[in-house]
């Protein structure tokens, strides 16, 4: 589903290279965890996958279902099924949450040549998905993410993900700022989306989230490269011994 080949990327503004020859393959149905110390390029990788214009790819390619997505902008990538759950979801005053959800769902449908949702159909979908994630109708009446607590923002991200039904989900530190109850709700939401035709990339610092969203593969990112890949047990190893051994071995 996703194939990243020898990817090099830098910050557009100052040219700082962050991703330095990264290779990664994620298959349909797979849940891949990406771990690594601060500053290794985890969040940057998620932004580049989503098409954020602050970064430039200088070498290599990103293939999604066999096709390069480098020339697509963020909205086209999203409409093709790539979803990034943000570490820090953005507050947008003046944009109503429900309006945002409706426009996003319908614009994606339009891009794919599908008909727009009727208002009752849209309402029903939102109501059902919101109930699963324990999101109150009051929250949905507020402007997008405005005044939401950290946990509410993360749940709102998973709500968007559930409604947009992406094929490739990238979760950027979705566990940060969550207490254990919120973490379980979010993890249940993600697990409900696991399916043979969908891939999930979970970016995290901690083993904790991976107790709830159990990965098929674990990849260690360091200085913009994947320096080690392995089965889910690799995460336990990292939890016990830290990154030093692996970084030392790779150096």
């Amino acid at each position: 589903m996703l194939e990243i080949k020898n990817l090099h990327a830098r910050i557009a503004e100052d040219g700082t290279e962050i991703i330095r020859g990264l290779n990664l393959t994620v298959k349909a149905g797979e849940v891949a965890a990406i771990m690594g110390p601060n500053g290794s390029g985890k969040s940057t990788l998620s932004y580049i996958l989503s098409g954020r214009e602050d970064y430039e790819v200088t070498e290599g390619d990103i293939l999604y279902n066999g096709e390069s997505i480098l020339e697509l902008d963020a909205s086209e990538r999203a409409a093709k099924g790539i979803f990034l759950a943000f570490q820090y979801p953005v507050e947008i005053p003046g944009v109503a949450t429900m309006q945002f959800l409706k426009v996003a769902m319908n614009e994606q449908r339009k891009y794919r040549g599908e008909s727009e949702l009727s208002t009752p159909d849209f309402m029903r979908r939102v109501k059902e998905a919101a109930a699963e994630l324990k999101i109150s109708p009051e929250m949905l009446k507020r402007p997008l993410n405005v005044g939401f607590s950290g946990g509410e923002k993360k749940r709102a991200e998973v709500l968007q993900m559930a409604l947009l039904e992406p094929k490739l989900c990238v979760l950027d530190e979705t566990d940060s700022g969550l207490d254990i109850d919120a973490l379980k709700i979010v993890a249940d939401g993600v697990n409900a989306l696991r399916s043979p035709d969908r891939a999930v990339i979970v970016i995290t610092h901690y083993q904790r989230l991976l107790d709830y969203i159990v990965p098929d593969t674990v990849h260690v990112l360091y200085k913009g490269q994947v320096i080690k890949s392995g089965p889910k047990e690799l995460a336990h190893e990292l939890e016990a011994n830290g990154y030093a051994d692996i970084i030392g071995a790779a150096a």
């Binding site: 954020r52 909205s75 999203a78 943000f86 944009v95 945002f100 996003a104 614009e107 891009y111």
Partner: peptide
């Protein structure tokens, strides 16, 4: 960027 990342042109 946030709106575009949700598929809004």
């Amino acid at each position: 960027y946030y709106l575009q990342a949700r598929g809004i042109p």
